[in-house]
Simulated assay, not measured.
Amino acid sequence: MNDNVVIKENSFLNINKASANGVMARIFLAFLTTAGIFYVNIMPAIIDGLKDGAGFTDQQAGFVGSANLYGAAFGALLAVFIIKKINWQRWSYALLVAILAIDFVCIYINSPTMMIAIRALHGITGGLLVGIGFGIISRTSEADKTFGYLLLIQWSLGGLGIMFLPGLVPEYGTAAMFISLMVFTVVTLMMLPFLGDYPIKNDEHKSTNTAKIKRLPLMLTLFAIFMFQGANMGLFAYVIGLAKAEGLMIDFISTSLGLASWIALFGAFLVIVIGTKYGRTVPIIAAIVLTAISTWLLHFSESANVYLIANIIIGITWAFILPYLFGICSELDKAGQMAALGGFASKMGLASGPMVAALFLGNDNYGLLIDMAAIGLVICAIAAFYPARLLDTAK
């Protein structure tokens, strides 16, 4: 029977469920995992919208974003401890409704302090949902492909948000941003009933409590995820300022970054197509090295072509590498705890990268920032080599 069709019937809801490892199930799981942290993919639009629509300062809007991300990291960490003990579907329904309510409340908040507090709560709620989603994805076959769908959806819909939301905020205020997040949540709620149970098998229960999960490969993988996200986001947060310092015009900068975001979909699509056909070691290491080289080429951003091409390559490899790194976590523990822990490492990297970069940026010292990002990526490649090679050898 075709693995992509809907075949399983739910006796309670009297609806058909998507095949556990089919394309539709992978897409639904990707939506579920994205719903908790979709704001990250439209973060530039949200920051700009808070400034234009609510009158926040740069610092206040930035604190809102940081509160969301650090809250998400805490929520993802919490998922590590509960993923094996909960009814993940009931929790997902409850968390999606909570996210919907929080985004609705945010429409009417004008105080920066209150917004920071509420978005931190949103981050914890969404991060917990993301951690649960990661854990369930790890129970699918070829989890790397499912993570590929996750990145595909995040980059494509994030690109749409960044493209259209800034133009809506002047007319509709911050409501435009939060309503867009609510729409995404409602769509995800409509998909959730079609997902199967994804129970933990007996041997997967045992694997979490035995030496089958090797600590060194796990720690190296989590460190690689943290370094990869931190290095990329630390530079990405200032990539517009870098281009302006090199004399590039804002229209070209915006077009370049938008184009890079859309072309980056190819990276996630490539993971879906090839999966682990060529193992994990060669794709991961080659792509990280290519990312580091492209990052270093940003030293020559006075050339518009170099800036454009470097950002396109970084976008493609970013969307290509992450599914493989998350896939390693999934292979180390099919029960889902380690994948949830990978989500925590990812959120900490995303939140910490810009903060560390700000400490070293100083008086527009973008050259040092580029070097730090490139070195961080090299360290990431070194850390990822052993766990990737270990899984390839076992396979």
Results as ranks from 00 to 15, higher is better:
V6G: 09
K8E: 14
N10Q: 08
N14R: 14
G22T: 12
R26D: 07
I27M: 06
I27P: 07
A30P: 02
A35F: 00
I37M: 14
I37F: 12
F38L: 15
N41C: 04
I42R: 01
A54H: 03
A54W: 10
G55R: 09
N68A: 10
F74K: 04
L77M: 12
L78H: 00
I82H: 05
W88E: 03
Q89T: 12
R90Q: 12
L95R: 03
F104R: 10
F104Q: 07
V105G: 00
C106P: 04
C106K: 05
I109Q: 06
T113P: 01
I116D: 10
R119H: 03
T125N: 07
I136F: 03
K145C: 13
T146M: 09
F147A: 08
F164L: 13
L165M: 06
P166L: 05
G173Q: 06
M177I: 15
I179L: 14
S180N: 00
F184N: 04
V187W: 04
P193I: 11
P193H: 14
M219F: 14
T221K: 08
A224Q: 00
Q229H: 08
G230M: 13
F236H: 11
I240K: 15
A245K: 10
A245H: 15
L248N: 08
I250P: 12
F252Q: 13
F252N: 11
I253A: 09
G258R: 07
G258T: 11
L259G: 15
L259N: 13
A264H: 02
A268T: 05
F269V: 08
V271E: 01
V273K: 15
V282Q: 14
T291I: 01
W296I: 12
L298Y: 05
H299V: 02
F300T: 08
E302L: 06
S303P: 01
L308P: 10
I309S: 05
N311C: 11
I312L: 12
I314Y: 02
F320G: 13
L322C: 02
Y324A: 10
I328C: 09
G342Y: 04
F344W: 07
G353R: 01
A357S: 07
G362P: 02
G362Y: 00
G362H: 04
Y366N: 08
I370C: 01
G376W: 07
P387R: 03
L390T: 10
L391P: 06
D392C: 09
K395Q: 06
